[in-house]
Amino acid sequence: MYLVIEQLLNGLQFGLLLFLLAAGLTLVFGIMDFVNLAHGSLYMMGAYFAATFVAWTGSFVLGTLMALGATLLLGIVLEYVALRHLYGRDHLDQVLATFGLILFFNDAVRLIWGPAGLALPLPAWLTVPVQIIPGVYYPAYRLMIIVVALAVAALLYLVVMRTRIGMLIRAGASNREMIGALGINIKLLFTLVFGLGAALAGLAGLMQAPILTVQIGMGENILILAFVIIVIGGIGSIRGAFMAAIFVGIIDTMGRAFLPDLLRKVLSGAAASTAAPALSSMLIYLLMAIVLVVRPEGLFPAAKR
């Protein structure tokens, strides 16, 4: 039973992390109609920046804050120099161009930091287990990820639903030309949204960094998961991304934790040990395929253009 609670929390934590990544992606997708494969690279850069700055300053909090700023800046520069010229182009062009950026970032990281991975050590106060309910301990750091991600999600909700800039973002998502015609500086708005998305991806990357190693290509697998999430949730819908991210995070984690045992009860040992890893990795994609077949627009489609 404790194992189930622990895995549920792990799933929630993973799902929230995925949400941070997917939120930026779905904003950029929904508002600029831009498919950004390089989003995973920003996630990777966030992790590398954090590992570097934390080692440099010696402070976890200061280092990660600097890394967050650096990713935000990188996103804005990237948008300003290259990506803004791709808005309004064919999705395929965007896929190709940002695919090129992935190649670029992977090799740039290899050149700067070397091919070996980096580790981002946690400060002592984050490594202690916390007793969440009597008898159940959970790592403080993972708990912190959950809290931070929930806070960011709440903040994002407030910004998008309650502020003027959020109103512009929503208006931009439903009709770009119209808000441009109403005298809003869309170029600036787009740059801001892209920077926000980049910072969210960087945040996800640097929070994941202490759990996994910081390495080249770390953004690629998780990028595909983030795409799966925004497709399941409905492109452009932050609420959909949130629901789908938690759903996907929990299903993925629970599948990996419990599917092998479940299969062993049904199948023979050898067959189960072959099928389980494949099935648990596939579960998410299977889910997406089913959702797309049943509801081709995703579960929570954003307002129609």
């Binding site: 161009a97 090129g100 670029f104």
Partner: peptide, 10 residues
């Protein structure tokens, strides 16, 4: 190669 792709697309 990466930036080259970007330039080709642009």
């Amino acid at each position: 190669m990466g930036p080259l792709l970007l330039l080709i697309v642009l």
